[in-house]
Nucleic acid binder design. Structure first.
Length: 581
DNA sequence: GCCGTTTTCGGCCCGACTGTTTTCAGTCG
């Protein structure tokens, strides 16, 4: 299950929101937001720390530490409970609507008694917001649009949220006596960007012990259905989880069936039918005799249908069956192919950990190289200056030397870079003379998302044409479920990347996964190179790489397509781009 | 409430954009 850190980070974020909604001191709001971020990103489990240990976490002082201790002891924090009692939970949920913040949420609650998204929708349709100070027709329109965005994300959850839960359930059920195999299937196994519900599959002779263990998991709040082969539950965060138990020799057929996607299954079932066979979750059967032919492994089932094993990330009926029949499935990139992360932050800007800690964690992952890319000065909130950046570079060079000395030929190389801001005209933070000092530059859009299509396209193309821009960071800037990607002519941008030797990022953060699988497929047709990066703001974020690699797989990428799988010399050649000298 | 080449108080990331305003509040990154 989620670490105590995540639970407590969420708790303090809620506290910050509640202070903000009730008009509390803005600095206290900031403090608890910062504390939440620090705790969420802290490497050690807070439930193992005492007050002294807790206050060693940045942005956690005595007061916050004592609240953590109180929570771990009693399951609640009295100060937070007091605010919860004053403000219905629904009011806080209103602030999830883009353009609707704490002030407007409080006005809606105090003036109209609105405490849910549905009530708000009704009130807008009944024109009851018109008389409120600060609310005009455009506000109503924006709120309705925001609600639409929120609803379109549906009840799906982020990939990492589902993964944490699923891995915990698999670990629990694997411990039950009689468990032959246990795995998660469904869209989670296919590493889709959001997950609607979790499918867990168990192979065992007797199902009852698993069904019991499953419904008794601590985070199960509701049992929706409880049967012999299938049990469905809902967890505290609203996520539905299905457990299916199949006989051990049906494992392969079951896994294939429950992994999907539906369109993929329909295609292979159709292939079976044409061969006089029938495919179900129990196996591949001969229609006439009813005799089971194969079922033990996925490979067996695919092979009998004339197909090689198809990786789950490709099973979307996007050409994988045809490619399989021709024996032309791509040799997909894997996490172990990645030799380094090329987009990461430190506490010099908005990261949580110092340079040394980030580098040590990267070396721990076995990377051959690792780039530090803090924000440039144009993102004003980051307070970057030339002096600070150059001082960081000196430390990076020093640390690089130390790492090489320690690791010999296998020592990790540290690269010094920056994440530049692409301004509305397509310019970036520094003049070329200064940029020339970096080993690489990531450039990203962080604002002015609503320029027209032409302006946005020109903006990104200009960034590609800058000889010092090596990677376009989170190219569409979408935030899953919260903000759509920018409306640029992506094909033109992809063509510019291919022409100029600029890589497109596959940002591995589960909020972004940007580029998305669909866009990767499109960009790939232009012959673009990619970089799978975590954009890590803490040591823990480095592990998000798996989601970026999964997304790259869903975009059919091989390691040759991805620059940070390349040996250092080849990477450096790519990074030189069209630079003079 | 946290933090400190400012050391126990006083500052805390800063600017842009939007919509509702008549000089600014709220939201966002």
């Amino acid at each position: 299950m989620a670490r105590s850190n995540d639970e407590i980070a969420e708790l303090f974020q809620e506290y910050a929101d509640l202070i903000s909604i009730t008009g509390g001191d803005a600095f206290r709001v900031r403090v608890y937001e910062k504390a939440a971020r620090s705790i969420g990103g802290h490497h050690a489990d807070v439930s193992t720390l005492d007050v002294k240990g807790l206050t060693e976490i940045p942005n956690v002082g005595r007061s916050t530490a004592e609240k953590i201790v109180e929570y771990l002891r009693s399951g609640q924090v009295s100060a937070i409970e007091e605010l919860r009692a004053r403000i219905p939970a629904g009011v806080r949920r209103l602030t999830a609507i883009p353009t609707l913040g704490p002030k407007k949420a409080l006005t809606l609650y105090e003036e109209l008694g609105i405490s849910s998204v549905d009530e708000l929708t009704d009130a807008i349709h009944e024109e009851r917001l018109r008389d409120l100070k600060g609310f005009g027709p455009k506000t109503e329109e924006n709120i309705l649009h925001g609600i639409g965005l929120l609803k379109s994300a549906g009840d799906r959850v982020r990939l990492d949220t589902a993964m944490d839960l699923a891995e915990d359930i698999v670990a629990e059920l694997s411990r039950v006596t009689g468990c032959r195999r246990c795995a998660y299937a469904g869209s989670l196994r296919r590493l889709r960007e959001t997950i609607g519900d979790i499918d867990i599959l168990v192979a065992a002779k007797r199902s009852a012990p698993f069904m019991r263990a499953f419904t008794e998991l601590p985070y199960v709040t509701e049992v929706i259905a409880h049967g012999e082969t299938k049990t469905s539950v809902r967890t505290g965060n609203g996520l539905a989880v299905d457990l299916r138990v199949v006989p051990p020799d049906s494992w392969g057929a079951g896994l294939l069936y429950f992994t999907g996607a539906k369109a993929h299954n329909i295609r292979i079932r159709d292939m079976a039918v044409r061969q006089g066979l029938k495919l179900s979750e129990y196996g591949l059967f001969d229609v006439e005799s009813g005799e089971k032919i194969v079922s033990a492994t996925e490979e067996d089932v695919y092979a009998r249908l004339g197909l090689p094993w198809i990786p789950p990330t490709l099973r979307e009926d996007r050409g994988e069956i045809e490619a399989g029949l021709r024996d032309e499935l791509p040799d997909l990139i894997t996490e172990t192919d990645i030799r380094g992360d090329l987009h990461t932050h430190t506490d010099l800007t908005d990261g949580l950990a110092p340079l040394e800690e980030m580098a040590a964690a990267a070396a721990e992952r076995g990377y051959a190289y690792y780039a530090i890319t803090d924000h440039g000065p144009n993102l004003y909130m980051q307070q970057m200056t030339d002096e600070r950046m150059l001082a960081q570079r000196a430390r990076v060079r020093e640390l690089d030397g130390a790492l090489r000395a320690r690791g010999g030929r296998r020592g990790m190389r540290l690269l010094h870079g920056a994440e530049l801001n692409i301004d509305p005209d397509g310019d970036v933070d520094w003049p070329e003379e200064f940029l020339a000092g970096f080993d690489l530059c990531v450039a990203s859009v962080h604002s002015h998302f609503n320029q027209g299509r032409e302006a946005l396209t020109r903006r990104l193309v200009r960034a590609c044409e800058n000889p010092y821009v090596n990677i376009i960071g989170h190219p569409t800037t979408r935030l899953i479920g919260r903000r759509p990607g920018i409306d640029a002519d992506l094909d033109e941008v992809f063509a510019a990347c291919a022409r100029t030797g600029t890589a497109l990022e596959i940002n591995a953060h589960p909020d972004r996964l940007d580029l998305s699988d669909e866009h990767i497929l499109r960009a790939g047709r232009h012959g673009v190179r990619f970089a799978v990066d975590t954009d890590a703001h803490s040591v823990l974020h480095l592990a998000n790489l798996r989601y970026g690699v999964g997304t790259a797989q869903r975009g059919w990428l091989t390691k040759g397509d991805v620059i940070n799988t390349w040996p250092e010399t080849r990477l450096r050649r790519f990074l030189r781009k069209g630079r003079p000298g």
